[in-house]
Amino acid sequence: MYVPASRDRAGPRRARTRLAAAAAVVVTVGAGLGLRAVAAGSLAKYGGDALYTVLIFALIVLALPRVTALRAAAGALAVSWTVEFLQLSGVPAELSRHSTVARLVLGSTFNPPDLFWYAVGAAVGWLAHTAVSLCSARSSLSA
Score class of each variant (00 low, 15 high):
L95C: 09
A119W: 11
W81A: 04
Y52V: 02
L77G: 02
A22P: 02
L86D: 06
T17S: 13
A137I: 00
G30I: 03
W117S: 03
A5C: 00
T130W: 07
A15V: 10
R13V: 06
R18P: 09
F110L: 13
P4R: 07
I56M: 14
W117A: 04
V61D: 12
A5H: 09
R14W: 11
L19W: 12
L55V: 02
V120E: 09
S133W: 05
T28L: 04
P113D: 13
S140Y: 00
N111F: 14
G34V: 02
A69F: 05
V124Q: 00
F116Q: 01
A22L: 14
T68W: 02
L106C: 09
A10R: 15
I56F: 08
R71N: 11
G121T: 03
R18S: 09
L95D: 04
T28D: 11
H129I: 01
L70M: 08
L86C: 11
L127H: 00
R71P: 01
A137R: 15
S42I: 05
H98C: 11
C135Y: 08
L95F: 07
C135V: 13
V83Y: 12
A93C: 07
T17C: 05
C135H: 09
G121F: 01
A20T: 02
R16Y: 00
A24V: 03
T53L: 02
A143T: 10
S142H: 10
R138D: 02
F85T: 08
V124L: 13
Q87P: 12
Y46L: 10
T68N: 06
R97L: 10
A128R: 01
S133H: 06
L141I: 01
W81Q: 07
Y118E: 12
T17P: 05
W117Y: 15
L51R: 03
F110K: 02
R9I: 13
V132S: 06
V38D: 11
S80R: 08
A78T: 15
V61M: 13
A78K: 07
V27K: 01
V105S: 09
L33D: 01
R7T: 00
R66V: 06
A15L: 14
F57P: 10
G11H: 07
W117C: 06
T53W: 08
L134A: 14
A15T: 13
A74M: 05
G34F: 03
P113N: 06
G32W: 02
V105T: 11
A73V: 03
C135T: 13
R18C: 11
R14G: 03
S133F: 00
K45E: 10
R97P: 01
S136G: 14
S6Y: 08
S96Q: 07
C135Q: 08
L55G: 15
A23Y: 02
V91A: 15
D49E: 12
V26H: 04
E84K: 04
T28C: 10
R14C: 06
T17V: 04
V101Q: 04
R18W: 12
L35Q: 03
G75P: 14
H98R: 15
S42K: 05
L43Y: 02
A76C: 05
L115F: 08
G107N: 06
V67M: 13
T28S: 07
G11C: 00
C135R: 14
V61Y: 10
V91E: 05
L55I: 04
L106S: 08
A74W: 05
A69L: 05
L59P: 07
L88W: 11
G75V: 10
F57T: 00
Y2V: 08
L127N: 01
L62W: 10
C135D: 10
